[in-house]
Design a binder for these strands. Structure first.
Lengths: 177, 177
DNA sequence: GTCTATATACAGATAGAC
DNA sequence: GTCTATCTGTATATAGAC
């Protein structure tokens, strides 16, 4: 049994990833869950509060996920491939990256949310850098940026064309084949 | 003297690139130009018509721009650098790629507009492929995808952090330094 | 914690005068 | 081609009952 707050976050996350944060309303959330909009305001006073909660939650979830990937895979190569596989699932669900979406709609989110999005990508890039360092690469920082950029862009293009293989294809130079 | 239709498209393009296509309304356009919303409906009966016109116009403009780059630069390397310089200007204006934005908000645009966005990226990638072929690369198709993905992703991240140099940094492997 | 009811504002869109 | 006026629906948000 999932509590209401989690149901709201789950649906809001999905809608943000598919239609954008400005592409849905509290009515969509309420109807989708089977509650009233006023109940959503009980948990998230404003839509900006909801945006902040979404970014913070996925930041935490991915931080845990990255730790699990480090525990589950010995090589940096295997970890990067696990990251790719994870985002390939987004394409099956026709979703874009939550923070990528917020970054795209940047001028329509509050400065507070913009900072949270920056923090998400900063930590993501730092984790990637550590993997490239672990693999003995000299230019780990640049490789991390190249991988992250290529991941976001190929996720955007792969989803547009309904093809999950676009991601590993675009990132081929960063992994062993 | 710019005509009204062009003014509408210019402002709508700018707003789409900064706030997303769902991040502005006909009122924003009307107030920004100094006309009434009903005048906008005269040129674009529905907002979806406006979306389609925006994608078609930038597709045409970029097609011309790519032709001009081929005429103005002999080497593929110089042309790719010109593309990078062009999108670096977006970051100065705090803008994302128009079609990248529509691709992000994919599930909130009509199938018609989605097809136009696909066509834009198809032609962009084809042009890039031709440059890599011109440079004698064997895997031109994959390089084109990698470049395009890295461009979209680094534009997203560079704008988020207000740093235009993120683009050439992320795409370093595709150009001579 | 969830509801009803409501406030206020705005959305996209249209009819018809000028 | 641009306007006034208006329609209908929706947006975010709040007050207060249960």
């Amino acid at each position: 049994m999932t509590d209401t707050k989690t149901k709201i976050l789950d649906l809001a996350e999905s809608l943000t990833q598919t239609k954008g944060f400005n592409g849905f309303s509290y009515i969509d959330l309420a109807n989708g869950i089977g509650i009233k909009t006023s109940s959503i305001h009980y948990y998230f006073k404003t839509k900006d509060d909801l945006a902040a909660a979404l970014v913070e939650r996925i930041h935490e979830n991915h931080t845990e996920g990255f730790q699990a990937m480090e525990a589950g895979h010995d090589s940096a190569d295997a970890r990067l491939k696990a990251v790719i596989a994870y985002f390939q699932n987004y394409i099956a669900d026709q979703k874009f990256c939550l923070c990528g979406m917020m970054a795209a709609e940047l001028q329509s989110v509050s400065p507070r949310v913009a900072k949270l999005v920056q923090a998400y990508f900063r930590d993501f890039q730092t984790w990637l850098k550590r993997q490239f360092e672990h693999a003995g690469k000299e230019d780990a920082d640049r490789l991390a940026l190249g991988f992250l950029s290529g991941l976001e862009g190929s996720l955007l293009l792969g989803r547009l064309n309904g093809d999950p293989d676009v991601i590993p294809h675009a990132l081929q130079d960063y992994i062993t084949t």
